[in-house]
């Protein structure tokens, strides 16, 4: 990330004081440039935590590589012999990294996070969900098929279909975000959420067949 981009995202203006040597630390640095000690995590979105640009289309292996590299630096195991304050800071960094990775590796999590950054959260409980009758119909029909599935094969078929459907939704989400069409992205994310829920339920049902 260039300085100009960081500034545009409103992170780079401030200089903080290092808690240990009390020297100046550029706000987005995680370690003090003078004494090298770990600093407080900076408030920021999950993308910034993994040094990523906020966008939907991201390379999953790249996200994972960044996550591992950062956990190698910040995991509490790296601070077991350090001072109490450093341990506490490492715990906060590692916790935030786990959360960021969890959200970003999942396309639905990523979409919802982008929408909430854009001020258009998906989880507006209730109101949003009924405004799309087509989606409701689709969801009800699939749920009915799941409850009627009498054999593992039927659940597997439904799972495969829903997974293919999810993949298509993810592609469309990519286009919507790329075009800056948040209204479309919001609708697609909601449908993806329903698909994810159905996959969870189908997998749970599949698990019962396995027993």
């Amino acid at each position: 990330m260039t300085t100009a981009e960081a500034t545009a995202r409103g992170e780079a203006q401030a200089v903080r004081a290092c808690w240990s040597c009390r020297g100046p630390v550029p706000a987005r640095e995680r370690f003090c440039p003078t004494c090298g000690l770990v600093q407080e995590p900076v408030a920021g979105d999950h993308f910034a935590r993994l040094d990523l640009e906020p966008r939907f289309d991201i390379d999953a292996t790249d996200v994972e590589r960044r996550y591992f590299a950062l956990q190698r630096q910040f995991h509490p195991d790296r601070f077991a012999a350090r001072s109490a304050k450093e341990k506490a800071l490492s715990l906060r960094h590692a916790t935030a990294l786990n959360e960021a990775y969890k959200v970003l590796k999942d396309p639905l999590g990523r979409a919802e996070h982008l929408l909430s950054l854009a001020g258009r959260p998906v989880r507006a409980d209730g109101a949003e969900t009924v405004s799309d009758p087509e989606l409701l119909m689709e969801a009800m029909e699939l749920r009915e098929r799941l409850s009627e599935a009498a054999a593992a094969a039927a659940v597997d078929a439904l799972l495969a279909e829903t997974r293919a459907n999810s993949a298509a939704l993810e592609r469309k989400l990519g286009h919507a975000f790329a075009a800056g069409d948040f209204a479309a992205a919001q609708k697609l994310a909601l449908r993806l959420r329903y698909a994810a829920k159905l996959i969870d339920e189908a997998r749970e049902r599949r698990r019962r067949f396995d027993r």
């Binding site: 040597c21 020297g23 003078t34 012999a81 001072s83």
Partner: peptide, 14 residues
């Protein structure tokens, strides 16, 4: 001792 070393390290770096 850990705390003391931390302070010395910080100060010398500064």
């Amino acid at each position: 001792q850990v705390e003391g070393r931390r302070l010395l390290l910080a100060l010398r770096a500064a």
